[in-house]
Design a protein around this nucleic acid. Structure first.
Lengths: 116, 116
DNA sequence: CGCATATTTAACACATCGGTTAATTAGCCG
DNA sequence: CGGCTAATTAACCGATGTGTTAAATATGCG
């Protein structure tokens, strides 16, 4: 119960079928049947993947007659990226240089008497 | 078996305890006991979280006498961010403007006769 | 060696996940 | 209404995940 948002997002992304569904949705909205087509799993299985994505906020859904259209909602991806950005200095070389630069600036300003 | 790498990474990140462990490791290497200290779960539980993180490539481990030290390895976070970047245009406003700009440039170059 | 400490492995319990098939619900249309 | 199509829910199953406690393993040291 009460799983935090980030956990919901990451565990939604942990399944390859769900990531493929998101990829498909990045090309435009689609119905359940359309989304199911590339996979050889049953419709109910796809239906539940969509529910997981919806719970994570990664898709929204609308009804149009008997069809339910799914639409990509990328905000949670922003959120997840934001979380990872806290670690960016550990892998992004240019970020590491920026980091060092900022550190140097800070050091210099802490020692106002030091020339050069 | 043979779960793909991205799935391993995302499902490793899906657990709050594991994310907390990574946060702790961003401040420096630590032993299993040190990592376990903030949580009220057993040592074996922490040990298995570390194994999950190791399998995902998110940490590496070294032995020093009877202590095993864990070290953050951020490369998989780069990989995960890279995957999410494919969707960046769906949520990053400045990226959306860049996207529109690139689209325009491409359009212009497809029409060499058009001035301006 | 034998003990103490650090950590992992084994064995177990229980919940969740991802799939199935069968049944149900939702909405159009003749 | 009755039937058709779209989609979800129910009931079930086996695998996996996360936790436990108890036992095993690894290493340093007196």
């Amino acid at each position: 119960m009460s799983t935090d948002r980030l956990s919901l997002i990451f565990s939604a992304l942990a399944d390859p079928t769900r990531r493929a569904i998101l990829a498909r949705l990045s090309e435009g909205e689609a119905t359940v049947n359309e989304l199911a087509e590339p996979f050889d799993i049953s419709l109910p299985a796809v239906s539940r993947h969509l529910k997981v994505l919806e719970n994570a906020g990664l898709i929204s859904r609308s009804r149009n007659a008997q069809w339910r259209s799914s639409k990509l909602e990328a905000e949670p991806l922003r959120e997840a990226t934001e979380w990872m950005d806290k670690y960016r200095r550990f892998w992004d070389a240019s970020f590491i240089r920026l980091d060092a630069h900022l550190r140097k600036i800070q050091h210099d300003s802490k020692d106002p008497g030091v020339k050069q």
